[in-house]
């Protein structure tokens, strides 16, 4: 891992317009990704973990500019991704790639494996056309695919093999950054380990950086150097792996950790069980978005959204519990009684 920063995400925002008024102005927006910042060094893996609907995938897609962003900026290799004109964007695509969740629906059924992997190589002229076959076979070998698979079609393969094809396709254009959007959640346990090992080997070999998105904490723990926990479009906590697992600060991170069942029958954990479901991102609760499920909810959490700040060196958290400056700058009392706020948000959720 070098110190070169390859990706910098600053206050990234992505809103989806749900309803427009007569003049076409947005009336109601869904804040899928709301103010996210992190940096990624070369050869590093950042794990993004969160429940379904918290905006993990939207974040990954926004970084790659697969959808346009509403605010903030993404700086990749010194270039602002949002400002790159469309014709240059194609060039950028070779440097950023994505591996999708479902290997059954992300491969074209009428193309052979060789064509799938070789297409982008051909388009971007990464190798001369005479060497294409040899190059594709080389990539296939690296990803654990046998040479005689070259002329086969995706339906002939099992889930694990298909995911290998997806990985080979993404890596064939020699990217620097790969967004892995739940690459193992559709696979069986024994195959999962295979794919995780493969991804780790390729990272070391090709000096890749990963944004690894998953809802499975144990997988995230295994692959990442740095972990971001997301809840309803916000980063709740961001720290290095060891920091986060040894000393989780946010109550949400702690509940998430305690909810993972350990494969050890004698280990009795003090489980924090949350009440209620994750609220709809279209109507997030007032104040801290987690307050209506939080076991350590305080009065202030219901009114004011906590800032994302550095609570310990390189350990960022968005929670009022650790806000040291609270005594120095007490918040102004809010005129609305908190009880009504609470009821309102419950109804919306």
């Amino acid at each position: 891992m070098s110190d070169k920063i390859i990706l910098e995400v600053k206050n990234l925002k992505k809103y989806f317009v749900m309803k427009k008024d007569l003049l076409g102005r947005p009336k109601k927006v869904l804040k899928a990704v709301d103010d996210i910042s992190f940096t990624l060094k070369e050869g590093e893996t950042i794990g993004i973990v969160g429940e379904s609907g918290c905006g993990k995938t939207t974040m990954g897609r926004s970084v790659l500019r697969l959808n346009d962003i509403t605010g903030g900026e993404v700086v990749f290799n010194g270039e602002t991704v949002a400002d790159i004109p469309a014709r240059k964007l194609r060039k950028l695509r070779t440097e950023m790639q994505i591996i999708f969740q479902d290997p059954y629906s992300s491969l074209p059924p009428r193309m052979s494996v060789g064509q799938i992997i070789g297409e982008a190589v051909k388009v971007h002229k990464i190798v001369p056309i005479e060497e294409l076959r040899a190059y594709v076979l080389d990539i296939m070998g690296k990803c654990g695919l046998q040479p005689h698979y070259y002329d086969r079609f995706p339906h002939e393969f099992s889930g694990g093999q298909r995911q290998r094809i997806c990985i080979a396709r993404a890596l064939a254009v020699r990217p620097k950054l790969v967004v892995c959007d739940e690459p193992v959640s559709a696979l069986d346990v024994s195959i999962q380990a295979n794919i995780i090992n493969l991804l780790e080997d390729l990272r070391d070999e090709m000096k890749l950086s990963y944004i690894f998105i998953s809802h499975d904490l144990s997988v995230i723990y295994h692959v990442s150097d740095k972990i971001g926990v997301m809840y309803l479009g916000n980063l709740v906590e961001l720290a290095s792996k060891d920091d986060l697992f040894d000393n989780p600060l946010s109550p949400y991170t702690r509940t998430l950790f305690s909810a993972v069942p350990a494969p050890d029958p004698r280990k009795k954990m003090s489980r924090i069980i949350l009440t209620g479901d994750i609220p709809s991102p279209a109507n997030p609760p007032h104040g801290c978005k987690f307050h209506n499920r939080c076991p350590e909810c305080m009065q202030i959490c219901k009114m004011i959204r906590p800032e994302f700040y550095e609570a310990a060196p390189n350990h960022f958290v968005a929670c009022h519990c650790y806000y040291r400056h609270y005594e120095l700058h007490p918040y102004e009392p809010v005129s609305v009684p908190p009880s009504t706020l609470y009821v309102k948000s419950r109804k919306q959720g």
Binding site: H215, L256, L274
Partner: peptide
Amino acid sequence: DVTIQAQILD
């Protein structure tokens, strides 16, 4: 999800 899974198992 994990948190919901914990609820259902409980």
